[in-house]
Design a protein around this nucleic acid. Structure first.
Length: 556
RNA sequence: UGACCGAUGGUGUAAUGGUAGCACAACAGUUUUUGGUACUGUUUGUCUAGGUUCGAAUCCUAGUCGGUUAACCA
């Protein structure tokens, strides 16, 4: 009977792996996650991480972390550390921590091999000259005047390059393939360039550095990666990838490509992400509005919600723009089950219970999480003066407004039913105080009043309420696909993406919040403690709002 | 313009020549001391035109549309 649980179909890469294992092509697989340490990991990287590590979790094998650090000018150790932290936080453990720069010596040897085979040459042309002879997709390129140098001279020149006898950019090493090849990448691609730059790991040992195409596939091969998974823009590189492996006669790693995952209302281009940081649009790489892994972490997302999200989004080869609503669904679904409920009033107005004696306090029991009976209870204090949310009162309520207004009744969550008698405004016309009478026999759990109300609102006892800062986040962009928009990305920044509430009223119990805690602020959304919190002042970040069908009803 | 990759409801993703399914979203309803949750139901789809076949989302041909590709970046 329990046999009929449906087997989820494999994605196309899992299918390839499955076939390779079943056919005996490999006894076990090795994958790798190969970030370049020149920026922080974002939600798109998480897809690749989940795929690569997920594959070996599912089929067995190893997954390496390999930093693709072949460009000393942009790469930094700080990024290496941040990347490692993010991967660990996501819940994955790599088998080996490796660096393309570990292979510089080997790679140099491979280049020498190529030269000896007559398959590489040193070119004295500069960047413009090389571009000029490259041709176009429809016209063939032309041979460089240095293309037919002898092997011995190439060997000597390449050694001189390595020895630092030339300036940055003065010479390059090129593979000798075919200047009229239909694939532009095969038109004698540059494989080594001179950069007199300090490398974050090898220091000043090298002044020549391999290009991506002469480092990535070879690194895969050295590590005996069986399935080298990358995104679609590398499809044309595969031909070169295979060519080097064939000519070098090294382990035949295979490259497979999948479509990068794009999230609506977000960008995942490192260039633009860096711009947001540099221009001060956000406070840093881990600003909760950033689509970085560290941003989502600080915003209160859990690792499992991100993993679930990519599981649901799937893997394919077509371009996509995934609704951010799916990610929000994933985190709500998890937090609904696990988050402790607390009451917080973000925009307070006073509510006075006219028939409740002054100076008296009543204690009420409130469940911590209706979805989790083991979450326990807490005690709430109730007295004559309370705080309620400004949104929960209207002077002239429309139909179907199930909250407070002249003559209307609501239940105060975990407490009593109250009926509005009158209200006061200040000289600007803002509501300041609402006066209600309460029904003592309507106490939560002991309600004998027989009164039925449609609405329940949250509240706080003004005598015991504390204060905290609450940061309300909204999407960072005004358009669904900012990356595809014309012009500067900064034109599409949502000015209301952060609203800071300096003095929100909070339950005293919230004072004990720890950094790892996540809460549902009743009727508002999910929140977590921000690292900016101090002992004097707590700061809470909004992770995501609750679904709000009232707001939706009113937006049309 | 060339080459390559792709095209299934609003979005994402299955169906591997044999009943187009799942999730999110949307909509309607039930329950509810969170306008939350849970539950039930509904709407919406194979890019176009030919062909192969008893049978095509799937195979073939052509077209259309979208993406990638002409860095001493990865």
């Amino acid at each position: 009977m329990e046999e009929n649980k449906e087997e989820k179909s494999l994605n196309f890469i899992e299918e390839i792996v499955d076939n390779d294992l079943k056919s005996g092509k490999y006894a076990s697989i090795i994958t790798r996650f190969p970030p370049e340490p020149n920026g922080y990991l974002h939600i798109g990287h998480a897809k690749s991480i989940c795929l690569n590590f997920g594959l070996t979790q599912k089929f067995g094998g190893k997954t390496n972390l390999r930093f693709d650090d072949t460009n000393p000018e942009t790469e930094e150790t700080d990024y290496v550390n941040a990347i490692k932290e993010d991967i660990k936080w996501l819940g994955f453990t790599w088998d080996e921590e490796l660096y393309a720069s570990d292979y510089f010596e080997t790679l140099y040897g491979y280049a020498v091999d190529l030269i000896k085979k007559g398959l590489a040459y040193v070119d004295d042309s500069n960047s413009e000259e090389i571009a000029a002879l490259k041709g176009t997709p429809t016209t063939p390129g032309q041979d460089s005047p240095y293309r037919n140098r002898g092997i011995a001279q190439n060997l000597a020149l390449f050694e001189d390059m390595k020895a630092g006898k030339f300036e940055t950019g003065e010479r390059v090493l090129r593979a000798k393939i075919d200047m009229s090849h239909i694939n532009m990448l095969m038109r004698d691609p540059i494989i080594y360039r001179i950069k007199h730059a300090h490398h974050h790991r090898t220091g000043d040992k090298w002044c020549i550095y391999p290009m991506y195409d002469f480092a990535h596939g070879q690194s895969d091969s050295i590590e005996k990666i069986t399935h080298s998974i990358c995104t679609l823009e590398f499809v044309p590189h595969r031909e070169l990838y295979d060519w080097f492996i064939e000519k070098l006669e090294i382990f035949p790693s295979k490259q497979y490509e999948f479509a990068r995952g794009n999230l609506s209302y977000a960008i995942t281009s490192k260039r633009n992400l860096l711009k947001l940081v540099r221009e001060g649009i956000v406070t840093g790489w881990d600003d909760p509005r950033m689509p970085t892994i560290s941003g989502f972490r600080r915003k209160g997302y859990t690792p499992s919600s991100i993993r679930t999200f990519w599981e649901k989004a799937g893997i394919a080869k077509r371009d996509n723009l995934i609704d951010i609503g799916l990610l929000e669904f994933c985190i709500r679904e998890e937090l609904n089950k696990t988050a402790i409920r607390r009451m917080v009033v973000v925009d307070p107005i006073k509510l006075v219970i006219t028939n409740f004696p002054e100076g008296q306090t009543e204690s009420l029991l409130a469940e911590n999480n209706p979805e989790d009976e083991h979450a326990g209870q807490r005690i709430l204090s109730f007295s004559r003066e309370l705080w309620i949310e400004r949104d929960d009162f209207m002077e002239e309520p429309p139909k179907k407004y199930f909250r407070l207004g002249p003559g209307l009744m609501v239940r105060l969550k975990h407490a009593f039913i109250v009926e509005c008698e009158r209200f006061e405004k200040d000289e600007l016309g803002n509501i300041t105080t609402v006066f209600c009478r309460y029904f003592p026999e309507s106490k939560s759990g002991h309600d004998t009043s027989g009164i039925k109300v449609k609405g329940t609102i949250h509240w706080l006892d003004s005598a015991t309420a504390k204060e905290a800062e609450v940061r309300l986040y909204d999407r960072l962009f005004t358009v669904e696909n900012p990356g595809m928009e014309e012009g500067d990305i900064l034109e599409y920044i949502h000015s209301g993406s952060l609203k800071v509430v300096e003095h929100a009223k909070i339950e005293p119990a919230l004072l004990e919040a720890k950094p790892s805690d996540r809460f549902q602020f009743l009727r508002l959304g999910y929140f977590c403690l921000d690292r900016d919190s101090t002992s004097e002042k707590l700061v809470f970040n909004k992770t995501v709002g609750l679904k709000d069908s009232w707001a939706k009803m009113n937006q049309s």
